[in-house]
């Protein structure tokens, strides 16, 4: 029954009380059940109410993902769980810092490509650049892949932040 379902990607936003251990509870739910986390971001979004927003990108069968949301929903410090993929038309953005080392032709090419991707150069030496790039996760993937043969040294990605289109709040 469960075996044959295809795996799908979901982005889930969770509003939580910003209290000790809340992230561990959320993560523990995934690790304890063997679910995947592809990306995770967390930050306080309302200092007055001590509310944080966690965004998780996961993949699994529809049944597992529904189960996961229900499990998240019953954690005591969780205020709200929203499926940004299934229930909303939403935009996803991610930030990447990408370090590329090289000289000559490769160095020129990396700079040229970064321009095409509208990346910023935020640090440079004679033989390296650090690019800052924002965009959809797939755009970041594409950029990182292009940098690989040009001397990619380091990548740091923020993980996905997501928000629904339109005027409604979460």
């Amino acid at each position: 029954m469960m075996k044959d379902q295809p795996s799908e990607r979901r982005c889930i936003a969770i509003l939580v009380d910003n209290e000790a251990g809340v992230l561990a509870r959320v993560i523990g739910l995934f690790s304890g059940r063997g679910y995947n986390i592809d990306s995770l971001t967390v930050s306080e979004v309302d200092p007055q109410k001590h509310t944080s927003r966690i965004t998780i990108v996961s993949n699994g069968t529809a049944m597992i993902l529904e189960q996961l949301k229900a499990q998240l929903g019953r954690l005591v410090p969780v205020q709200k769980v929203v499926d940004m993929t299934l229930d909303h038309d939403s935009v996803e953005r991610e930030l990447a810092l990408v370090k590329v080392k090289g000289t000559g032709e490769k160095r020129v090419e990396s700079l040229r490509l970064s321009d095409a991707f509208r990346a910023q150069v935020i640090d440079t030496t004679h033989e390296s650049f650090v690019f800052e790039l924002t965009g959809s996760p797939s755009k970041l993937d594409a950029f990182v892949n292009l940098m690989r043969p040009l001397g990619l040294v380091d990548v740091s990605r923020s993980g996905v932040a997501a928000i629904a289109r339109g005027s409604e709040g979460m």
């Binding site: 029954m1 469960m2 049944m63 529904e66 189960q67 499990q71 019953r74």
Partner: peptide, 26 residues
């Protein structure tokens, strides 16, 4: 064996825990 569980029935499930619903049996 959940593959062979009550194959022909319409299932009503009352539970106070939403995560119990559709966990193993739809």
């Amino acid at each position: 064996n959940i593959e062979k569980f009550s194959p022909g029935s319409k299932k009503i499930h009352v539970d106070i825990d939403p995560s119990s619903i559709n966990k193993t049996i739809m």
